[in-house]
């Protein structure tokens, strides 16, 4: 079992129920072949940095999970077929330090305190220099 993170963006034209259904679909495809989802990061509707298939916004969701490498091929195949998913990215956490980072991210997301971190991320930043010191 390998540690993975899967981020995907759903089209903004769908209703909330349809979005939830698509998210559930991806979740089912991960769990079908013995994958275990450790944490979910729901980033919500965000503005895209550039136009993707004529859309300017997208619904971001990220899954942290462990699965066999073969599962990823199947999950990505299904995502490519699904026209409602604009973008996706699978990240493998292989090195020891990366796995520690993966575990801390999971802990942070499963912890109720994590709401603070997620609220900060989509905040509007005006001056790039100003963030340098605070975020380091």
């Amino acid at each position: 079992m390998t540690h993975y993170e899967l981020l995907f963006v759903i089209k903004p034209t769908h209703t909330q129920e349809e979005i939830d259904a698509h998210i559930a679909n991806v979740k089912a495809s991960i769990e079908k072949d013995g994958g275990v989802i450790a944490a979910t990061q729901n980033m919500g509707m965000r503005k895209l940095a550039y136009e993707v298939e004529k859309h300017n916004r997208g619904y971001y969701t990220a899954y942290y999970f462990t699965a066999k490498p073969a599962t990823i091929i199947e999950v990505e195949r299904l995502i490519r077929i699904n026209e409602s998913i604009l973008k996706f990215m699978t990240v493998k956490y292989a090195k020891k330090k990366e796995i520690i980072a993966w575990e801390t991210a999971v802990k942070r997301l499963n912890n109720p305190h994590s709401a603070k971190e997620e609220a900060v991320a989509p905040k509007v930043e005006v001056a790039p220099e100003a963030t340098a010191d605070s975020e380091a």
């Binding site: 980033m43 990220a62 990215m89 905040k123 930043e125 963030t131 380091a136």
Partner: peptide, 24 residues
């Protein structure tokens, strides 16, 4: 700045964490 905070992994979802490494 990352050595100062002993960062081991930079999350690509957290844009503000690498904002100062981007130009205008």
């Amino acid at each position: 700045k990352y050595c100062e905070t002993k960062t081991d992994y930079i999350d690509f979802k957290n844009v503000s964490s690498f904002k100062f490494s981007l130009s205008e």
